[in-house]
Design a protein around this nucleic acid. Structure first.
Lengths: 349, 349
DNA sequence: CCTGGCACTCTGCCCAGGACTGTGCCAGGG
DNA sequence: CCCTGGCACAGTCCTGGGCAGAGTGCCAGG
């Protein structure tokens, strides 16, 4: 992207800001009136023609004002704007809301709720990644002779479960032996190391319990492999996408909702976006054509032990990027704090 | 509701069916043509006037056809229609989809997905009630000296967790003592009995562990008290409410989505509806004005040990009630079967 | 390089007319 | 007493024309 003439940059900036506020194509006359640019509408027009030539703005039709293109928003975000930090009382309110959460799940739920209300878009919150968390405890519950429910309790307070289907029946007390052997070996281990350690336990274990222990190791391995797609996702404020008056055709709204229902897809989009941090992905930059009229703004947050997740919003391309970025970043950092408070206590000396 | 003249009943039925299919007000002429009623449009008109007098149909405006009112749909559902059972291959496909589920949560998720695709409305699935389930195991994990994570594993394979904040620190081995004492006492007990039994354990326990055991009892009690509102809810196919062309104003769509986001509200609506089984609640019969243009069709299902939940759909009042009822009931019974298969194996001799 | 002016284009709105649909009512016939 | 055909009436939807408004593109001049 070539760098822009100073006045043209100012005009692009004005177009973006006006359009984001009003939702209507903005013309040369209005522009000079509201932003006293010191030049005449005619000059602005020729500049706008240049901006259009450069692919930064378009015409809906011959005689309408200009509208930013995705590239226009991109230029605006990259070089014409800077995030406007939230007001201190907003940050305070934010932290107040998040701090009191009783557990991680509830905290993440609240986070998605508060972020959606703050931005008036759909909020996306991805739970801390499992792979770097530490395992606290494994519980094995025998539901049937060959089927065992394995429950994994992780230091962030998250609880995961998985059914194990064995080829042969296991005796109740062998389940207990496996349980003890595994827990002795893995307590407070990084989840990533767990499969290998458990596999080691299996090797040294008596033959009756070996298959069970191996099954547990396999379950953890599977869980970690899935972790990318299997991460927990909390979505909030989807209704915001229906109001607001973005999107002209109802079909667009529907396809956005359809996309939001597919957690796997949303997770992929988020992960894809988060090659930068904070990340802004505008319209066609998103990997899904269904979301061509949408943008994603996201940021990472860290959690105890180097694990972490991300928060973000999905909104129309016509969004206030500086404000949204600020909100997303503020929420990410508040979440980080609240999480630290919640699980920082979770490493007793 | 007084009973209706036979011809008038036929006319009402025809109006409902035509309107549900086409979405447009239906007039006297079309009616006699398509349903060869054996009388002239004029006669139909006078009957329609009577039906309108009775509050079963309305005019959108002076010179439009008639549209059923909520009461009209109600009459149709109660006395003019009967559910059309699904085709056998549909039932088979349904069961095929549900049977392979690895665990209860996934099963319920799939259920909501399949029900929404079957009906093209938003599907609601409430997990089996906790209060009549049996407790399999309680796990206590100490996250900090005064904070304990209690994990409850129930026979349906469901896992619930709850944080316990104690007033005083507990020693690690006391946590283990409490854990053993509780598990010895409660294994395979109905959840409803659990609080009292644990309270009994607390009484006989040494003073160091007493507060912890009591906290566990309180947690279960709280969990059960909440059970009404705290039940797990799986919502699927919400995007269907945006397509379809029901709802004229976008505002309605938005308020439906807002309602769907409030799980507590949805659960209340469902529980309220399920005084009958199967239940049909039409428009103004629902306890929420926001849902005045919607109907709920729901049915209960039973799960192991007398516990159970419900499945249902939320759609526009203008829905095909016989078909929807059939779908909901078929899904409920398939879910019941799949659940039995999944947890029936869970009562080893 | 900027500016004012001018012609042009396209939208949105209003209004009127006509086609259409559907109703309500009434008088007449079985 | 109920059904029927006929007729007047009311309201929607569509179309077309006219008109105002906004905005552009271009060009000649400072």
């Amino acid at each position: 992207m070539t760098t822009l003439d100073e006045r043209r940059a100012a005009i692009l900036k004005a177009i973006v800001q006006d359009y984001v506020r009003g939702g209507e194509p903005v013309g040369s006359k209005r522009l000079v009136e509201e932003w006293n640019l010191g030049v005449s509408p005619a000059t602005v027009r020729s500049d706008m023609a240049a901006l259009e030539e450069a692919g930064l703005i378009t015409h809906p039709h011959t005689s309408a004002g200009r509208v930013p293109t995705d590239a226009g928003y991109r230029y605006f975000v990259d070089t014409l704007s800077q995030t406007e930090p939230l007001r201190p009382e907003q940050v305070a309110a934010l932290e107040g809301l998040l701090m009191g959460s009783p557990d991680v799940e509830e905290l993440l739920r609240r986070t998605s709720s508060v972020l959606s209300r703050l931005t008036r878009f759909a909020a996306l919150v991805v739970a801390p990644r499992l792979d770097r968390s530490r395992l606290r405890h494994v519980e094995l519950v025998q539901l049937a002779p060959t089927s065992i429910l394995a429950v994994f309790i992780v230091d962030t307070g998250r609880v995961d479960k998985r059914m194990l289907d064995l080829d042969a029946a296991v005796a109740e007390h062998d389940v207990q032996r496996a349980r003890h052997a595994i827990n002795d070996a893995v307590a407070n281990l990084r989840l990533l190391q767990v499969p290998d350690v458990i596999a080691g336990v299996a090797n040294g274990a008596p033959p009756e319990v070996q298959p069970l222990v191996e099954a547990v190791a396999a379950a953890v391995r599977r869980g970690l492999a899935q972790a990318g797609d299997g991460d927990q996702l909390f979505v909030g404020g989807t209704a915001n996408m229906a109001g607001g008056g973005y999107f002209d055709r109802i079909e667009q709204v529907k396809s956005v909702f359809e996309t939001l229902e597919e957690q796997v897809v949303v997770l992929r989009v988020l992960r894809d976006a988060l090659q930068d941090d904070p990340a802004v992905r505008i319209g066609s930059e998103l990997p899904l054509v269904e979301l061509a009229a949408c943008s994603v703004v996201a940021a990472r947050y860290d959690a105890a032990g180097g694990s972490g997740g991300s928060v973000g919003v999905l909104g129309p391309t016509r969004m206030d990027y500086p404000k949204t970025l600020a909100a997303v970043q503020a929420v990410a950092s508040s979440l980080e704090k609240a999480l630290a408070e919640l699980t920082g206590a979770s490493t007793p000396s």
